[in-house]
Design a protein around this nucleic acid. Structure first.
Lengths: 157, 157
DNA sequence: GAAAACATCTTAGTTGGTAAGATATTTAAT
DNA sequence: ATTAAATATCTTACCAACTAAGATGTTTTC
């Protein structure tokens, strides 16, 4: 009774392994970015949310980041002090503060990512259009799965 | 003067976007796993290091996780209390504690990931061997890049 | 066998989080 | 129009987990 693994099994095994490594590496990477910017991880995550989703109120930021409003007050204080974001009173509802990014000061971050993007471009050169399409499909689908699992885990307690 | 984007440009743009989303989603996922296990993120990260790299001394764990030895003492205390790891005196050097995983109690985590792995298998069905090889290559290469960038960021300060 | 090196733990102080409630503003009800 | 309820953010008191520095116990070196 010999255990035989097909080439496909081996591919799948290697990919599973590599995805796990990729997760861990990603987490360390984001930690390193935050440190580089002189921010803690939470503050950096909130800054990214603001970059990706655009200006929003303090309450929305709390909801998106899964932090309490009390914690968000501190986050915004620190981001404001670092010059990356600022509070603007909502003219229509003066209870609300809208938190927006300070474009001039965010340039450092954008330049950083531009360098990274350039190196990634070189990686893309390796692949044909068809291959890139497969990669995109896989990354999208596996991200969808991860989102699903995250929801399930949160529901379970 | 019209800006024209080729199909390839669009693919690359979409992939860049998707990779960024994937990072964020991964971070939330790991947060959810930790919560599910009743651990904080730091403790969970250390547990993963032990799973991936095998048993190691408290000092090695501190180095791998970029925590101080003081913090690691707390991490190990909590992992031990939760039953996921234990301290074993190094018989050759009694200054050292070797931290090892408690296999019986780690099963919960393995079962959790087995479920995830099964669902991922269905995703793999979509792809040919050749396509899986391309995906594996891309994930490996982009992980390597991320590792490189992480190092660079840490060196720079 | 004494000094230096080493591995881990302990302690004191700091940071960033939550929960609960204070303050200010808007919306809804009569 | 006034009052009550709802809403948005901030403040406060408290707690968990981190760092830095040094204490403790063990090994290595000379």
């Amino acid at each position: 009774m010999s255990t035989h693994f097909s080439k496909r099994d081996e591919l799948i095994h290697a990919l599973t392994d590599q995805m796990r490594i990729s997760s861990t590496v990603t987490i360390f990477f984001h930690q390193a970015i935050a440190e580089h910017l002189g921010l803690n991880q939470t503050d950096h995550k909130c800054l990214e949310l603001l970059q990706r989703k655009g200006a929003m109120t303090a309450g929305e930021l709390a909801e998106e980041s899964k932090l309490t409003t009390g914690a968000i007050t501190g986050v915004i204080d620190r981001l404001e002090k670092a010059g990356f974001a600022r509070r603007v009173k909502d003219p229509n509802d003066r209870r609300r503060w809208i938190i927006e990014i300070v474009q001039e000061n965010i340039k450092i971050i954008e330049d950083l990512f531009k360098t990274f993007a350039q190196q990634t471009m070189q990686l893309y050169d390796k692949y044909t259009d068809e291959e890139l399409a497969v990669i995109l499909d896989y990354v999208s689908e596996s991200t969808n799965l991860t989102v699903e699992w995250t929801k399930k885990l949160r529901e379970k307690r």
